[in-house]
Design a protein around this nucleic acid. Sequence first.
DNA 1: CTTTAATATTATAATTATTCTAATCTCTTT
DNA 2: AAAGAGATTAGAATAATTATAATATTAAAG
Lengths: 136, 136
Amino acid sequence: MTSKQEFIEKLRNSSLRPTKQRINICEVLFNRDKTFHFTINDLFNLIKDKTGENVSLATVYNTVHAFLKKGYLKEIPINSNQTYFDTNVTDHHHFFDVKEEKLIDIKNEDVGPIEIQKSIPGKKIKSVEVLVKLED
Amino acid sequence: MTSKQEFIEKLRNSSLRPTKQRINICEVLFNRDKTFHFTINDLFNLIKDKTGENVSLATVYNTVHAFLKKGYLKEIPINSNQTYFDTNVTDHHHFFDVKEEKLIDIKNEDVGPIEIQKSIPGKKIKSVEVLVKLED
DNA sequence: CTTTAATATTATAATTATTCTAATCTCTTT
DNA sequence: AAAGAGATTAGAATAATTATAATATTAAAG
């Protein structure tokens, strides 16, 4: 259980103002044991449910993007009508269950080393992400 | 140079009616040497430019989705506000130049074998796709 | 060959996802 | 405490995608 005070510090330390909207969003996102995969809409609904307070959808977008930039969230490359995010910001990969539209983490250790034998002049590799689509 | 007649046959053979809208879309998509990465909007604009005819945006969506289902196009898993597609339907991977928002194919041979040492009961692997993000 | 009926396709209209910006809040400086 | 500077919020606007009524295509019958 992380306290509200810790979220306030976390926000201040990354020069994000600790507004009540952001603290509510932190409660929903980071007050959990397991990694959490979500869309903006999932998060929006959970905020209402869990905190009883209303945060506008635009603010959820703003905050998620601010957290992304600070490295508190990761965007998951997947084709869906909605963008998926992950609270697990370590280097890892994903299964995507196409039928159930569900994401599952794959630890980096569970994927053999990936060798890219091609390079683009003037560019360097920022990240390598694997998406494994699952069917029945 | 592929002829209009060939597109008509291709469409008929996959039980898609060869409407003039679809033929125009085929001209833009498949009348080229190199693989082509595009968004629905790119395609919509190219149709107007290249054929001089107007096809509604909704029809572009419909047709791209029909072609996807028939296996004539591939959807590229990437996080962008718009969905990207590829005329290269062989098994391959992508670089994504984050700054320029540009996709580059990586041939399957240029990526070492990818071993997934985790499995999900009752599910089998449908595809494995690698996205390599590039920065300067 | 037409005509007709069944079905597929198109494109407008509706919906959903995301971003823009004026009003508001937070924080620093005094 | 008050004010100014800048950050944040949320309503309004825009952009992306989908649903459906109107239209077009095709196969079958005459």
